[in-house]
Amino acid sequence: MSAALSIRNLTKVYNNKLEALKGISLDVMPGDFFAVLGPNGAGKSTTIGIISSLVRKTSGDIEVFGYNIDTHFSQAKKFLGVVPQEFNFNLFEKVEDIVMQQAGYYGLPREFAKAQTEKYLKKLNLWEKRNTPARMLSGGMKRRLMIARALVHDPKLLILDEPTAGVDIELRRSMWEFLREINAAGTTIILTTHYLEEAESLCRNVAIIDKGLLVKNTSVKNLLQGLTKEVFVFDVAVDLPQSLSLPGFPVQIIDIHSFEVEVEKGQNLNDVFTALSQQGIAIISMRNKANRLEEMFVAMIAQSATNQLSTDQASANQPPIKLEVPV
């Protein structure tokens, strides 16, 4: 079976000599919900730009469902729907016209295009706004409009670049629900995001890009298994003693009713509960201190930076090359 997206040795050097991508290769299988993570400037948007042909690659190959984007661009693009990070529609056009036009660019007959436009505008709660010029929409509505536009030709692969950036929590949750729904219906989804909670909640597989290199490409489950320790925050009903101690677990008191416990991989959380119970401390609530994937992500990026530094230092420690000039 062909991968929904196959990227091989992708490089991009911009005109200002910035090397945005340094040879990325990865596969996304059909039906997957895939996250591309990375800090700002990592190369995520450049990768999406190249896939959607808005950025010219320097070298490498990309196939969408087995179709090369250079040699079979028409077939490849038919399978692809892209939701960019920035708003990129004509602000003076009406919502319905924007989606209808996109359907036309994919060659959809007018009647079918009308039906598809209505279907997706209704699904994304924009049908009431169909005759409104795009500039009059709120930020969240504009983002939903871009999703409706990207879906109008029923792409098999949907790529979203920071789809929930700047969107309020309620709307973000409803967008997650919608994305889960279309993924369950068979659409392969790739998203880049800064909200690691989003990736952990939605995606099965993840690629981490940093400084134009692929740092990690694995399942979210595997990635989380790599965590060596987690920090839990406990809220308790009674006043905590100054000398709170839980054998085998480092403890830090936050205030009189809450404290943190570090639990290493292999340790049993039940031992914490038992120790607390023996001291007569009743627990009201417990939560992870930080998003688990976030911890993993920060660790990986830090490791990547350290590796880069050692490589640079190793190069710097090399003896200078002597040029032997024949006399």
Binding site: V82, F87, N90, Q101, Y105
Partner: peptide
């Protein structure tokens, strides 16, 4: 306005 991207990403 970058709306030209609408047609550039399409198979047109």
């Amino acid at each position: 306005q970058r709306s030209i991207e609408e047609v550039l990403v399409s198979p047109t």
